[in-house]
Amino acid sequence: MATHNRRLTLARAVDGLPSIGRRALWPVVTGLALVVVWEVGARARLPAYVARPSGIVAAFPSVVTTPLFWADALSTCSAIVEGVVVGTFVGAVLGLVMGRVREVGWLLAPLVRSLYSMPLIALVPIMVLWMGYTQTARLVAIVVAVLLPVAVSTSDGARLLSPDFLDVGKVFRARPHQVWFGIALPAALPQLLAGVDIGIGRAFTNGVAVEVLASVTGLGYQLFDEAQSLRDAVSFVYVIALAVFAIAARTGVRMLSRRLAPWYRPREPTAPGRLRREPAQVVGA
């Protein structure tokens, strides 16, 4: 009972904070606790080269001030941006055609869907074999990683759009191109963006995979290179950089989706902000 009351008091004290502070308090406390556990645990049990928070903080300024770091970041990020733009465009067109023209859908869906559910990483060796140890191989791997989810989810969106929309189009005598780009594309936009979101995640994995397997310079290559030289703290700065870029890109796509299609609520992997906000109930109380 005593602990129960104490917890209540604590909860009330937390509830008294302004809302942003209240929401940030617990994650910050947990984060600090995790960092302390990591630091102490690594010092106590792991060999000296294993990255620990103090080492990473110490390495951070010296890494991000080198031109090499920014050259790598530019190389990887520009490849990702280029690949995402090309992949989204091709995937959206392919998805629209597959979704709106049923025969094309039947013809292409089995191929696109089975490629989509395949571990794309298994295709990286072939790409390296065909395109050599080049930046082109990385770009193609990224384009494919984005193209497939975009095509699959856009075709779902375009196929399952409400017949009411098409009826309205018919009533107003919409021309075919107006139906496609005025009705089907906007209706499938949230699914398209959900595909881009998944695609960006895969793009980073594939991009890093090609960099490592084919020795293409970039953040991923440098990350593994530093780790192999047992400079794990330096390597972890690259981990942070990749994570920041990936999360920023995906958050950007999600914000875009919320802005352009506020009615759309994706069912699966949801960002914390989008999960149901009501507090978990104390069951049975």
Binding site: A51, F204, E226, S235, F236, Y238, V239, A243, A246, I247
Partner: peptide, 11 residues
């Protein structure tokens, strides 16, 4: 979930 897991391989 959102960070590229591949980057955690060295860790």
């Amino acid at each position: 979930y959102a960070a590229p897991t591949v980057a955690l391989v060295p860790v």
